[in-house]
Nucleic acid binder design. Structure first.
Length: 606
DNA sequence: ATAGGGTTAG
């Protein structure tokens, strides 16, 4: 029923002593009948009612008593914490009474002392979900009211986990940080979902922070948490740090597994720059040396990495290698290969791969179709694209907005604007909503056809709906510039800001290019000043290229040379376009393109 | 805990 200790005289006198202080608050329900004074009801009766869940009786029994005070009384009377919890739930849910944080966590402390962990977990789950929204610092303060650090750590840990499980990631992070200030030791169990959530929000630095804190607070990470950290570092290109964490793993008695290696390989694949695939390959060798076998994911990562590094042959070699090792390709393997072949303009090979996957019994999906349709569109095979589109619809697969956009763009690029609009109407009939990309394709088509008025009209319709994005502006501005109306184009800068968008380098580069084409170098230079002074955007290589082109075309080679020097002094690296514009000057300065077109400086290369 | 696609500007 209730703890024996409740019956001890010490507890009862304690109870009465505390309660008598409240007698003024609820004098009608308490009779002080001489000595020893006792209330008209006692805890045992209430405990019994809670136990039997006779809520209406209980409600009647305590109707004149301040519920918060009674709850406090029950808590200090060492009533079974389970019963306290039951009473608490009834108070909050049925009587709509809010209990103070201090009292709430007093309850959780006693539940923790009684090792009722799963009850605490589900309690906290509801507590953070319904979001009585107490500030995290108040909650941790309430936790700290008890001086058992172990119990407090458990509660703080469960709090972080509850926040993370209920998608309240910011609060989970805050609770994690504050737990550190109190010296509470959390577990890897709650750190993992927190780190995953932070990673999903691309907060790599915060993942790294949590990891470092774990080490500092002596929370033992496991393979999973290590892999999440490695992934976070790889996603932000911090490959050296990722490798360091790999080394840390060994120190903490964890061995990198296939996921750790795959993550690292993918990190190198997605890194920019020359020679990254060499490094990816080196990791592959390393994992094999360490007796970790590459799996399907490993091969898929490498296949994708190679063709994106303009090395389709590399992708095909990996594909062959995986077949040799009896690793069965899946839909991701085939889609990546088809996409690679399409991007390399090898359409017939892509179709061949599509057939191959069918005979291997792998069903193509929308990703496959979109890759092929895109490949057709970009390679002047609109008819094939439309055929595939029809067969997709014929088999009941619903194309996406982007499927339509690719086709609409293909029509527009062929100058068939009307067909583009017809397709847009068709998608609307099918219940697929055109997005800003759809409109951008159409506006671009109108501009290229020289029909800037129609483009502007469509743009105005979008503006009234607040739809245009920066790309829309770029397309329209480019349209005006190519008509020799760069001044009109420049007026859109104000509109861009009005819509709450931020001009970028490209925005100004389009305008500078327009002015240069009109031979108005002064206006182009003004644009540069505006970009740098008003926007704080420093000239990038593309900006320099635009101005260099302008100066060269006007025969102002000396000015071009000054500009080029300025660019080099800033440490900007000229690219192929730079070289093509000011070849003579570049050669004078010792720049030579290599066989692949990458520039290198002969004079600095010793 | 790791892997794939799709438009518009460049």
């Amino acid at each position: 029923m209730f703890p024996k200790s409740l019956a001890t005289s010490r507890n009862i006198s304690n109870f009465i002593q505390k309660f008598s202080g409240l007698s003024r608050l609820c004098s009608s329900s308490v009779t002080i009948a001489g000595s020893p004074c006792s209330p008209r009801y006692d805890v045992s009766v209430i405990a019994d009612l809670i136990e039997k869940q006779h809520w209406s009786k209980l409600g009647f029994h305590v109707k004149d008593i301040n519920p918060n005070e009674l709850f406090q009384q029950l808590m200090s009377s060492e009533l079974d914490p389970d019963l306290c919890l039951r009473y608490y739930t009834w108070l909050v849910k049925n009587r709509n009474i809010s209990v103070s944080l201090e009292l709430t966590f007093k309850l959780l402390h006693s539940l923790a002392n009684a090792k009722r962990y799963s009850k605490i977990r589900s309690f906290l789950d509801g507590f953070v979900r319904i979001g009585s929204d107490h500030p995290v610092h108040s909650i941790l303060h309430a936790i700290s009211m008890c001086d058992n650090v172990c119990v407090n750590s458990i509660l703080a840990d469960m709090l972080v986990l509850a926040y993370a499980n209920n998608s309240r990631f910011e609060l989970a992070f805050e609770a994690f940080k504050r737990s550190g200030y109190y010296g509470y030791k959390l577990s890897a169990l709650s750190c993992k979902p927190l780190m995953i959530a932070l990673l999903k929000q691309n907060r790599s630095a915060d993942v790294e922070y949590v990891y470092k804190e774990m080490i500092r607070r002596k929370i033992q990470p496991n393979v999973f948490t290590f892999n999440v950290v490695i992934n976070a570092l790889c996603k932000t290109g911090k490959m050296n740090k990722a490798r360091d964490v790999m080394e840390d793993m060994k120190v903490y008695g964890c061995s990198p597994n296939v996921v750790s290696y795959n993550t690292l390989i993918d990190g190198y694949c997605k890194l920019g720059g020359i020679g990254k695939m060499y490094k990816a390959d080196a990791v592959l060798k390393e994992m094999v040396e360490n007796k970790v076998s590459p799996n399907l994911t490993t091969f898929n990562i490498l296949i994708d990495g190679f063709w994106k590094d303009d090395n389709l042959l590399g992708s095909m070699k990996v594909f062959k290698e995986m077949l040799d090792q009896n690793v069965i390709p899946n839909i991701i393997t085939y889609n990546s290969l088809i996409n690679g072949l399409c991007s390399g303009g090898k359409i017939s090979e892509a179709i061949g791969m599509h057939d191959k996957m069918a005979s291997a019994g792998v069903q193509p999906n929308l990703v496959t179709y979109n890759s092929l349709i895109n490949g057709f569109c970009k390679n002047n095979m609109l008819k094939e694209a439309l055929d595939m589109f029809d067969s997709v619809k014929g088999q009941g697969t619903v194309p996406t907005t982007r499927t339509y956009n690719m086709l609409i763009d293909a029509y527009c690029k062929l100058g068939k604007i009307d067909d583009g609009f017809t397709l847009k109407e068709e998608m609307e009939r099918e219940g697929i909503v055109p997005d800003i990309g759809t409109y951008n394709c159409l506006i671009g088509g109108l501009c290229r056809n020289g029909n800037i008025e129609a483009a502007k009209k469509l743009f105005d319709e979008l503006t009234s709906k607040g739809l245009p994005d920066l790309v829309t502006f770029h397309i329209l501005m480019e349209g005006y510039c190519s008509k020799g109306e760069s001044r009109k184009a420049a007026m859109f800068l104000k509109e861009i800001s009005k819509m709450g968008l931020k001009p970028r380098h490209l925005t100004y580069n389009i305008l500078m290019k327009g002015y240069c084409r009109e031979g108005n170098l002064k206006a182009a230079t003004n644009m540069r000043t505006q970009m740098e002074k008003e926007r704080g955007l420093r000239m990038n290589v593309a900006s320099y290229n635009v101005l260099l082109q302008g100066y060269s075309q006007k025969g102002k080679l000396e000015d071009a040379n000054i500009l080029l020097n300025e660019m080099l002094e800033k440490g900007l690296v000229p690219n192929r376009t730079t070289y093509e514009i000011v070849k003579v000057e570049m050669v004078d300065k010792g720049f030579v393109p290599d066989i692949e077109g990458h520039l290198f400086n002969v004079s600095t290369k010793s």
